[in-house]
Write a protein that binds this DNA or RNA. Structure first.
Lengths: 228, 228
DNA sequence: CGTCTGTCGGCTGTATACAGACCACAGGAG
DNA sequence: CTCCTGTGGTCTGTATACAGCCGACAGACG
């Protein structure tokens, strides 16, 4: 099955519109296209060596993911989030991540639990050794979502996470947050290991509230600095 | 603002692709297009008096809403859900509705609370008088989501609800569920009135678990009857 | 008789072309 | 000098046209 799935995925991305979706998502999240920036269809299509119809389909997909805003008659632009939008996205993320934590505590397979443990040790060692800022491809929440065994929930949580990542693309998270986040991750993980869904949800809620508070504070500080 | 919003919405739906989205969504949810049915782009485009590119964009949007499945090289088809997908959607809905209930208990304005009360009395009178099966446009969860004051959360919950509605399109919900659901709605509403977020979330979780159990039972019964 | 292969039809995926709307800027009137 | 208006350009929205792939069916071979 894995060979079939891999082969199917290889052929699945052969559509130009899907390639455009991936390229555009990377450009938006990497900051190559900044929030609020207008996207010219003809210019982008020419740059990607793609015709306009596939590009327009890609823009519709990214609009569904919340990364692109489409205004009828005025075209597309990279999504930009004000504080209210960030707050709304935060509530949405709380809903999804808390349920993920609950389900992970209820149903996570043992090897999935071990995968989370491995991730956490990697993050921890990276924090102790400032040489490596953050290991690539390590994603606590993504691994936890996989452990919860609900792909739709994981996809939804990933979409919201990317929107929030775009919202704070200008302001990096403060360095002291990483240490606190690690402790909060430990609390969630402990609850998952103990198979305690209520505790896992509660710990996740605490973690999310702290993360959102820090993020909102960063954005407010950046906004105040920008006005100065 | 409401005049502006209405005017903006009127002009916003002038794109053929958006019209196609609305028409297709209605056809899928009304059962005019049944789950699993293939959608021919040329035939549907000709029927809707629309060219294929706008129709393809509409299909991409509905794919993002989970109502259409797009297989590269093989075209589009109406989404069909097996029991595992329904279970996954149920967990997703639990996550969203529970957070909505919590937020409604925390922040709902007084008039929003009264709007919920009005809806519930309408549903209750409709249940007592079997002449009117169900009042049109009355939607407890939608009103509750509006009371929670988070449009993104409300949209996400609405999307999931529509997917589940499509999943059980063949099997109607059993009549005794309506009465139990009304009681469960009362419990949620009472918690919202008492401004008790924990109780609201708990009551919503109870309600969702019962609703999902009833739905899965209906689908299993229908599947067993179909095999017979 | 079963199976494989080649061909044909239909469909999706993509590109090009055209029409209409929105915006900016210049010119003129008050 | 300011505001309005007309015109031009640019872009989106839509339609049409072509190429490539998938699937089905018929025919031939084992």
């Amino acid at each position: 099955m894995s060979a079939n799935a891999a082969e199917a995925n290889l052929f699945q991305v052969r559509r130009f519109s899907d390639i455009a979706v991936d390229v555009l998502r990377d450009r938006i999240l990497s900051g190559s296209l900044q929030p609020g920036q207008r996207i010219s269809e003809v210019a982008l299509a020419e740059e990607l060596r793609v015709s306009r119809p596939p590009l327009r389909e890609a823009l519709r997909v990214l609009h569904g993911e919340g990364l692109v805003v489409l205004t009828p008659g005025r075209g597309a632009s990279v999504a930009s989030f004000d504080l209210e939008s960030v707050s709304q996205l935060g509530d949405l993320r709380i809903a999804l991540e808390c349920e993920i934590a609950r389900l992970a505590a209820e149903r996570a397979a043992d090897d999935a639990v071990e995968a989370i443990r491995t991730e956490m040790t990697q993050i921890e060692s990276a924090l102790c050794d400032p040489a490596t800022p953050y290991p690539r491809g390590v994603d606590f929440h993504g691994t936890l979502a996989a452990a919860a065994g609900n792909p739709r929930l994981a996809t939804a949580a990933g979409d919201v996470k990317r929107q929030l990542s775009l919202a704070r693309s200008r302001t990096g998270s403060p360095p002291e947050r990483a240490r606190r986040a690690l402790d909060e991750h430990h609390a969630i993980f402990d609850a998952v290991v103990r198979r305690d869904p209520d505790a896992a949800e509660s710990a996740m809620r605490t973690h999310m509230r702290a993360a959102m508070a820090a993020m909102i504070a960063s954005i407010e500080a950046e906004a105040a600095g920008g006005e100065r």
